[in-house]
Every structure is written in structure tokens, then in C-alpha cells.
Simulated assay, not measured.
Amino acid sequence: PEQLLQQPPKYEVDFADVKGQHHVKRALEVAAAGGHNVVMIGPPGSGKTMLARRVPTILPPMTVDEAIEITKLYSVAGLLPPNTGLLTTRPFRSPHHTSSNAALVGGGSVPRPGEVSLAHNGVLFLDELPEFRREVLEVLRQPLEDGIVTIARVQASIAYPARFMLIAAMNPCPCGYFGDPQHGCTCSPTQIRKYQQRVSGPLLDRIDIHIEVPRLTPDDLLRTQPGEPSEAIRERVVRARQIQQKRFEGTNVRCNAQMTTRMLRQFCPLSDDVKTMLRQVSQQMGISARAFDRIVKLARTIADLAGEEHIGLTHVAEAIQYRSLDRRIWL
């Protein structure tokens, strides 16, 4: 297994293919470095799906234990490709918005792993997030918190691992053009509110980064120079993950997004200036305690990417920007 994983993983897509959207690439780099969940909001054709499909290319190479875990799950589900002894690339699962509860979390008379388990140690991409049924989205709350999903049947109860990185994409309204300066929105305020409320507050709280993906400008579309390749981004992500491995050595935590409240106090000491900024932002945005903790985790990841030992004002300011949709778009 070690020999199979020594070679860098091969992907058919690369971040160099993506034109513009530098702030979104930065947000996805932060997400990959700390294992954070992301929701991208933007009009049709802005590149949300293209960006999401390239997230596995900047994640750290899998360890032997991770590769064995994934291979076992795919074998149980009957999805292991022929003549494949070990899966060496991180999974990317993209279930359709018509998927049922059983398809997402697993089920059947003999319980089989669902999409959340098949995305273990990889990426679960939910395109058109509000189009998923409300009850289907709500079942994501347990695996997002615990990293495990339990399927109970009369004969037995089976627990499958489900520690994945959630990438979601959605339009801001039914027509898709709310807030787009170049295309008028045809939806009424009531339609926009109902559409956005299909994603519950508790689920949104569990998504660390909310990022707007605007329409590309003509200059971006006409630019022929390739963007930064995935390999360069992955190197920075790997360095940040190595810092986290040393930080959490001896625990079951692998990255900043998995920190408990006690770990936050231990590994994320805040200066008086940072506390003042967080206090003001908390009052202005009316964020929940869970969202507050996620801002601190994001700031810790941003500091790790910068190679900084302590969380500074610039790190917190960037982390707050990734929660701005709490007050800017959601009605």
C-alpha cells in the first residue's frame, strides 16, 4: 500500500483551468487546509460546479489507513472497480437532488453505505442545495457533527464512517439572478425568502464558509493565461495540515474543523484586540454560538496557512468575511 500511495494522485481536472474567481479559490484553499465545509452561492454559469469538482485535487494525499477505510466501504457497497486493490484518490460524490434519505445516508434490508459514507475522507458535493428535500438535508446534521452514521434495523445496528468535506452550491433565488448586476431578477421577495429558507438555519450553522461566486467578467473570460495549478495550492494545504497533525498528535482529531470546544480554548488563545472584534461582530451579525466557534476555527486555519503561531486580527477579519452571507443575502 505504501508504494501505491507514494506516487502523487492523478486527477483529470485542475484549478489551472478555472478563470478568475480568485477569492473563491482562496476560500476553497482555506477549506481544504482545515477540513471546513463550504456553500457557494451565485448565478447560473458562474463556475460553482467547476470549482467544486477541483477541490479533491488540492486535498492532501491519502494515508494508508484512509485508503484502506475507503476501499473497504466501496467493497461493501459493491462499487470497487475491477482489478483495483486499493483506492488511491480521494472520493468525490455528487448525488442528485432527487436522492432519498436511504441513498444519502445508507439503508436497505441489509444496510449498505450511502453517499455520505462513500464520500468518507473525500468530498460530498450537493449541487442545487435548496432543491433537496428538507428531510433529506436534515439527516446530514448527525454525520456533519459526529463523522459517523448509524443505520438501525431489527436484526442489527450498523455504523459507517462519514467524515467528509461538504461542498454545496446553490442559486440565490428560483430564477438564479438575485443580486446579479447584469441580469434582472424576476422573483418576488416572498419567492426569494421561501427558496432560501429551504436550507435550515441549523444546517447552515454547520457549514463553515459561505462564499459568493459572482458572474465572470468579460476580461476574465478572455484571459488565456492559466491560473495557479492545483499542485501549488496543495503544497500550501499540506504544510498547514502538517502543522495541525503536530498540534493534535495523540488525539482522534485530524484537522481544525474537528476541534472540540475544549480544544478551541487550548489551541486558539485570543488576544484582547481579537476578542473585541469578535464581540462586536457577534452583536452586529447575531450569529449563534456554533457559528462563533466556526469563525475561530477558520481563523486558526488561516493562521496555519500563513505559518503564524498566534491568531491575529487579519486572520479573524478574513474568517468573518466567510460568514458574511449570514446577514447579507439570507432574508
Rank of each mutant, 00 (worst) to 15 (best):
F178P: 00
A119M: 06
K72D: 15
L264F: 05
A162M: 04
A169E: 00
L216M: 14
R236I: 01
E115T: 03
R241V: 10
V296S: 01
R223S: 14
C175N: 03
G184C: 02
T186E: 14
I167Q: 01
S188K: 10
M277G: 00
P81R: 08
Y11L: 06
G312F: 00
R193H: 13
T190M: 12
E231I: 15
H120M: 10
P56D: 06
V55I: 15
D127Q: 11
P56R: 04
R241N: 05
E309H: 13
G147F: 02
I209P: 03
M165V: 12
P60M: 08
S157R: 14
L28N: 00
I70P: 06
A103Q: 07
L86A: 07
Q245F: 09
R93I: 12
D326H: 13
L5Y: 06
L28P: 03
H183R: 15
L79F: 10
R300N: 07
D127S: 09
L51K: 01
T88I: 13
P226N: 08
L118S: 05
R239W: 00
M40Q: 04
L278F: 05
A240K: 04
V149T: 12
P95K: 01
F248M: 10
V149E: 00
S94M: 13
T49R: 00
N171T: 08
V274L: 00
H97C: 09
M62K: 07
L86I: 15
E318V: 10
R239D: 10
V281T: 14
D180R: 10
D65M: 12
I207T: 08
T314Y: 05
V110G: 07
G227F: 03
P218W: 06
L80M: 11
H183N: 11
G47E: 04
R54G: 04
R300Q: 04
G312Y: 02
L124S: 01
I192Q: 09
K72M: 13
T260S: 15
F92D: 04
V110P: 01
T150N: 08
L129Y: 03
K48I: 11
D273M: 12
H210W: 13
H210V: 08
D205R: 02
Q321L: 09
R90S: 09
R93W: 09
Q3V: 14
C173S: 11
G106A: 07
R206N: 05
E12Y: 06
V316M: 12
I68Y: 10
P218E: 11
A119H: 05
Q258L: 11
D146T: 12
Q6R: 15
N37A: 13
Q191S: 14
L144Y: 02
T217F: 06
Q284M: 11
D14R: 04
R133T: 10
Q284G: 02
Q6A: 15
P143S: 08
N171R: 05
